[in-house]
Design a protein around this nucleic acid. Structure first.
Lengths: 219, 219
DNA sequence: ATATTTTTTTAGGCATGCCTAAATTTTTAG
DNA sequence: CTAAAAATTTAGGCATGCCTAAAAAAATAT
């Protein structure tokens, strides 16, 4: 089935919100992102649901179906590849490309995007470090590992989280552990494998092994 | 003022029809090109006229205003530059690029298109040999010359006309002199510089110096 | 537990850009 | 010059995707 420009934008935005929060996505959060009124979003979610691209229960938020996710990943793939093109080939700065890529991501031609991918050397991340899905919609393995697998005295950078429960994320926020934070493992306790962690020159903090298992880092 | 996708397509198509026929463009010819019903075209022509992009008199056909021409030339520039990109960089064949370029021509970013122009080495023609306007909307000089400046026994091809009056074009039509016709100058009369002209194996015809001055050819 | 606030949905409208059917104008043929 | 044919326009509708205002449901506070 065909997708209109507006539908593609909704699916993309729902996908992006899902990356940050894997639970149901609220009408309001979509409304904020799309800069359209909540009433219009409600309308559209119902239509997307009828087309089988989202699961949607009135008042209960929305979730991409597998088909919806496939479409969204394709848009994201196109967006990120065009961003690479704009920065690498057109010599734009990394902060100038978003708006243009928002337009280019809707160009419909699988052949073009695959040729572009090859032309750019099959990049794995866009100019902002976000992963680029391959043509089968598979996100590349960026070599992130769990903090719990690191040895003492390792330096690394927080790249993501392996779970997204509210309590877990609230804990990270309280500890001032953010995406991109530079970390250093000062000590690992032999008994419970808890970690004494230094965060960019702040006061070192203790985190449990359970928490460390859910923090993705890159060395 | 902003242009919608539909408006841009209408202006582009009116421009292209004007290249071939410099008189007023009929509603029906636009309808054929856009694959929309004549009634819809009528509607749109009125709207384009209100926006000042065409001169339009009911039942009398349509003509681009200067502003309309400027917009149309910009679309044509983008279309043709993207076609060069698709063939030269993406390795498409020349007959596979039209549809994709129809989409890419609506991407709005002057900076992008000028960078693309530079990236491609400021090409003067697209893969089909059509001239590419520069960023000021000026079409390149493709080295066409007046048929009247050629010597006897020259072979050449009709590339354009230097004036567009109805009588002149009707004359060309009657003589079966069309864009692309392969010509050969058989004789030039010393007295009035009239020319005996062979047209692709048809019966040779006589044309006056006045007519020859208004025929643009390439050797 | 209930009242208030916030979130979400429904209802009714509007602009764009298309359609069909009917009316009107222009062109062509006799 | 007039009648038929062709081209064009007008009128009324429809789908998309947005809006505002009002109603309904869910969340929050007392």
């Amino acid at each position: 089935m065909n997708t209109s420009l507006a539908e593609e934008n909704y699916l993309k935005i729902i996908y992006r919100l899902s990356e940050a929060n894997p639970n149901e996505i609220s009408t309001n959060s979509v409304s904020e992102m799309t800069q359209t009124k909540a009433a219009s979003v409600s309308d559209m979610l119902r239509k997307l649901s009828e087309k089988g691209w989202v699961n949607y229960q009135k008042y209960q938020g929305v979730r991409l179906t597998e088909e919806g996710q496939r479409i969204a990943l394709n848009i994201v793939r196109k967006h990120r590849l065009w961003e690479v093109f704009l920065v690498e080939k057109m010599r734009f700065n990394w902060d100038e490309v978003h708006e243009i890529a928002e337009q280019l991501e809707h160009i419909e031609s699988d052949e073009l995007i695959n040729k572009l991918d090859a032309f750019l050397g099959f990049p794995k991340v866009d100019p902002h470090g976000d992963p680029i899905p391959n043509k089968d919609g598979v996100l590349p393995d960026l070599g992130y590992q769990a903090l719990s697998d690191c040895k003492a005295n390792t330096s690394c950078k927080l790249m993501g989280v392996a779970q997204d429960s509210t309590v877990f994320l609230q804990l990270l926020t309280k500890l001032e552990l953010n995406l991109g934070s530079k970390l250093q493992i000062l000590e690992i306790n032999n008994f419970d494998r808890s970690i004494l962690l230094s965060i960019e020159g702040k006061q070192p903090v203790f985190i449990s092994h359970e928490v460390a298992k859910n923090i993705l880092i890159k060395i």
